[in-house]
Design a protein around this nucleic acid. Structure first.
Length: 464
RNA sequence: GUCCCCAUCGUCUAGAGGCCUAGGACACCAGCCUUUCACGUUGGUAACACGGGUUCGAAUCCCGUUGGGGACGCCA
C-alpha cells in the first residue's frame, strides 16, 4: 500500500512554525516512502475560519516548498458525507441522539470537576427513548464509547499508549445543526482520503483515543499514528507571538531562506547522528519516524540564523543578488548600475551576512549617493590628516588598473611608500567609501564601486 | 481536578547496559588569521533532575518523587 500522509491545519490564523514542521514531517515521510503528501483544510469551524487564512496557509506552504501533491481537500465540502456516516452509526445502534442542552452539559462538567471526577458526559440519553425528548430541542448524535476495558494505540513516535475506557465518554459526532465535529470529520476524511499515516502534533494524542472509536465502530482499519512533540518558545511555554516570529511568512520577511527554515525545523526533534546541515534531498533519504524524539523542544533563533548563514553562503551569487535587489528596491528606487555593483560585492557579502536582510543592509553603501551619511565612528576617521591623505590617495589610485588584485597591490604599495600600516590607509578609505567602519574588504569595495564613483567618494569625503 | 506524554550542557541533540574521563552543533569566552567586520581555525566554560531498585556494570532497564507539557468543548 502506498504511503499517504496529510497535513490538516485549521484556517483560523496564519500558519505558525509548529504547523510548518508538522507539514515538513508529513512531506518527508511521504517522500521517503515514495508516497503522497496531501493537504486538508479543516474549516468546519465556520465562525473562525477565513478565506484569508486559507490563502496564507497555501502561500506559506508554497514558500517552504511543501505544497501538497493533490489539490487541497476542504473539509466543509465533505459535510454530507460526515453526516451520512453519523446516520449510519445511528442506524446501526452504534450512536444515539442526545437531547441535552449546552447548559445541562456545562453543569455536568462543573459538578464532575468539583467532585474530582473527570469532566465527562454521563450518557444519560444513551439508552433513553428519543420519544421522551423535550420539545424544541434539536438533538446531537453521540457515538457509543466502549464501556470497560482499555484502548491501546501503537504510536510510531510515542510507542504504545493505553487508556482506560472509563476515561472516554460518548462524544458528539454530529452537532444539532447537522454539521460534524472535528473528531468525527477527521476520521471520515482520513479514511476517505486513504491516509495511511497520521502524523500530527502530540496535542492530538489523547484525542486519538476518541477518534479510534469511530474507526472501530465503522469497522475501518485504523491508520498508523505518529504524534510528534510540540515546539515551545524560548521560555518553555507554548509558542506564541510574544516569542518573536512564529508565523511561517514572518521568517521569509525577516530574510530567512526556506531551505534553512526547513533544515532547522527538521533538527528540532529529529536527529541523525551529528548531522546538522541536512538539505532536502538528504532529509528525504534519511527521514524516519523512529528518529523523532518525544520531548518538546524550544525555538532557538540563534541557531536558525546560523543555519541560514550557511545556506546563504552556498547559494548562487546571482540568486542572492536578485533577492537583495528586491529588498533594496522596496526601500526606494535604485541608482543606475546598482545591480552590477552589488553583484560584484556579493562574494564578499555572502560569508558576512546571515540573512537576506543583513545582506541587503550590507549593500546599502553601494547604492548610496554623494554626499554619504557617515556613522559617528566613520566620521571620526576623517580628520584633517586623513582627508589630505584621501586626496593624495585618490590621485595615486586614479592611475591604477581597476581590478581587485591590482587595487590591493596598489594600496599596499602606497602604504609602504608612505611608511604607513595598511590599516592606517584602509580605515579612512573605508569610511570615505562606505560611511562606515565596517565593510567588505576595501579592495572589493573599490572595485565594485568602479573608478569614477570610488574616486568621487574619496574626494567628497575629503571635502574637496 | 482526572488522564496522557516528557526529562542529557543555557538551547538543539548523539547516546538503544560496558566503546562515556558523556560526543557534536548553536550561543558564550580566549588565542590564531587579518586592512575593518565577518568567514575560517585552535582551545575553553558547560549536562545525564532527584531518590530507590535490577545488574559484575546504568545516561541507558524498573519504580517513585519533583519539574515541564498536553488533553479533557455542539474548537480544531
Amino acid at each position: 500500500m502506498t504511503v499517504r500522509t496529510r497535513f490538516a491545519p485549521s484556517p483560523t490564523g496564519y500558519l505558525h512554525i509548529g504547523g510548518a514542521r508538522t507539514a515538513l514531517f508529513n512531506f518527508l515521510f511521504a517522500r521517503h516512502h515514495g508516497g503522497q503528501y496531501l493537504l486538508r483544510i479543516e474549516d468546519t469551524d465556520r465562525a473562525r475560519s477565513t478565506p484569508e487564512a486559507v490563502r496564507q496557509i497555501l502561500d506559506s506552504l508554497e514558500w517552504l516548498g511543501l505544497s501538497p501533491d493533490e489539490p487541497p481537500v476542504m473539509q466543509t465540502a465533505q459535510e454530507a458525507r460526515h453526516a451520512e456516516v453519523a446516520r449510519q452509526l445511528l442506524a446501526e445502534g452504534k450512536a444515539y441522539q442526545c437531547f441535552c442542552t449546552p447548559e445541562e452539559l456545562a453543569e455536568m462538567r462543573e459538578t464532575a470537576m468539583k467532585e474530582g471526577r473527570p469532566p465527562r458526559y454521563d450518557g444519560r440519553w444513551r439508552d433513553r427513548d428519543p420519544a421522551e425528548a423535550p420539545a424544541g430541542v434539536k438533538p446531537v448524535i453521540r457515538i457509543k464509547a466502549p464501556r470497560g476495558g482499555e484502548t491501546v494505540i501503537r504510536d510510531l513516535v510515542q510507542g504504545e499508549v493505553r487508556v482506560q475506557n472509563t476515561e472516554l465518554d460518548d462524544m458528539i459526532i454530529l452537532r444539532s445543526d447537522g454539521t460534524p465535529t472535528y473528531l468525527h470529520a477527521v476520521v471520515v476524511d482520513d479514511h476517505d482520503m486513504a491516509i495511511t499515516h497520521v502524523i500530527r502534533g502530540d496535542d492530538h494524542l489523547t484525542n486519538t483515543f476518541r477518534q479510534v472509536m469511530v474507526y472501530d465502530a465503522m469497522g475501518w482499519r485504523r491508520p498508523h499514528f505518529a504524534h510528534i512533540p510540540l515546539i515551545h518558545g524560548a521560555d518553555g511555554a507554548k509558542l506564541s507571538k510574544r516569542h518573536g516570529a512564529v508565523g511561517a511568512l514572518e521568517f521569509r520577511d525577516q530574510g530567512f531562506l526556506p531551505e534553512a527554515v526547513c533544515n532547522y525545523l527538521l533538527r528540532l526533534g529529529w536527529g541523525h547522528g551529528d548531522e546538522e546541515f541536512v538539505p532536502r534531498d538528504r532529509a528525504i533519504a534519511l527521514f524516519d519516524l523512529k528518529d523523532v524524539g518525544r520531548a518538546a523542544s524550544r525555538m532557538d533563533y540563534a541557531k536558525l540564523t546560523h543555519l541560514n548563514a550557511q545556506y546563504l553562503r552556498q547559494m548562487d551569487a546571482d540568486a542572492v543578488t536578485g533577492r537583495v535587489l528586491e529588498i533594496l528596491r522596496r526601500q526606494g528606487p535604485l541608482p543606475h548600475g546598482a545591480a552590477t555593483t552589488i553583484r560584484a560585492l556579493m562574494p564578499d557579502i555572502q560569508p558576512r551576512a546571515r540573512t537576506l536582510l543583513e545582506a541587503a543592509s550590507m549593500c546599502g553603501f553601494a547604492i548610496a549617493s554623494i554626499p554619504l551619511t557617515f556613522e559617528p565612528k566613520a566620521q571620526a576617521q576623517l580628520n584633517d590628516e586623513a582627508k589630505a591623505r584621501l586626496l593624495d590617495l585618490a590621485e595615486f589610485l586614479s592611475e591604477a588598473p581597476w581590478e581587485r588584485a591590482d587595487l590591493d597591490k596598489w594600496l599596499r604599495d602606497y602604504a609602504e611608500v608612505k611608511e604607513m600600516k595598511l590599516g592606517a590607509v584602509a580605515q579612512p578609505l573605508r569610511a570615505a567609501l562606505t560611511g562606515s567602519t565596517q565593510s567588505p574588504p576595501i579592495d572589493a569595495v573599490l572595485f565594485a564601486l568602479g573608478r569614477d564613483e570610488a574616486l568621487a567618494r574619496m574626494r567628497a569625503a575629503a571635502g574637496a
